[in-house]
């Protein structure tokens, strides 16, 4: 078994992309940390020759779902809040809008996009994680990507406050 450090080096960024797409940028660090801490503990028991990337995405899925479920339990409904422009402006407006759009995807689409396009997990394995047919996962992933296709984030240097 190679040292765990090389696992973090190789897959750290990939797991972060997956976590961030599933739980959003605010909770992504928690999801990443819990994923790698759990992976470190279980690492010696991972069968030699296992697909380490798929194993990590599976752990990231469980940890991220835990965070989402805990958040939805903690959320207290307070009725509709009218949308109004922030008085402070938002230096990261374009990106913030994107995360809103990702969060607004149906969960199945969001997870299918995260695990397949960002996590490199084959549709068949995503279907095992999420249930349902491989075909339905393939469709969810492509619907999710299509919903994001025409969305662009302004480049940093062009951004104005």
């Amino acid at each position: 078994m190679r040292p765990f450090e090389s696992v973090v080096e190789e897959f750290g960024a990939r797991v972060f992309r997956v976590c961030r797409a599933v739980v959003g940028p605010v909770d992504a660090e928690d999801a990443w940390s819990e994923t790698f801490l759990a992976a470190l503990g279980a690492y010696p028991r991972l069968a030699p020759g296992s697909d380490v990337s798929a194993w990590l995405v599976t752990i990231a899925h469980r940890k991220s779902i835990d965070i989402l479920r805990a958040k939805s339990r903690a959320a207290i409904p307070i009725g509709d809040i009218p949308e109004r422009p922030s008085a402070f402006g938002n230096p990261d407006a374009g990106r913030g809008e994107l995360w809103g759009k990702v969060a607004a995807l149906p969960e199945r689409q969001r997870l299918a996009v995260a695990y397949h396009y960002l996590g490199g997990l084959p549709h068949a394995q995503t279907a095992e994680l999420l249930g349902g047919s491989v075909e339905s996962i393939r469709r969810a992933a492509s619907d999710g990507v299509a919903a994001l296709r025409n969305f662009y984030v302004p480049d940093l240097d062009r951004r104005t406050s």
Binding site: S33, F36, Y117, R149
Partner: peptide, 23 residues
């Protein structure tokens, strides 16, 4: 302009270093 998927792919290396330290 950056596409949505490119933004989803983009990870800040300083952020990863911070996560590594926390780990």
């Amino acid at each position: 302009m950056t596409t949505a998927m490119e933004t989803l792919e983009n990870v800040d290396s300083a952020q990863l270093e911070g996560l590594h330290r926390a780990l």
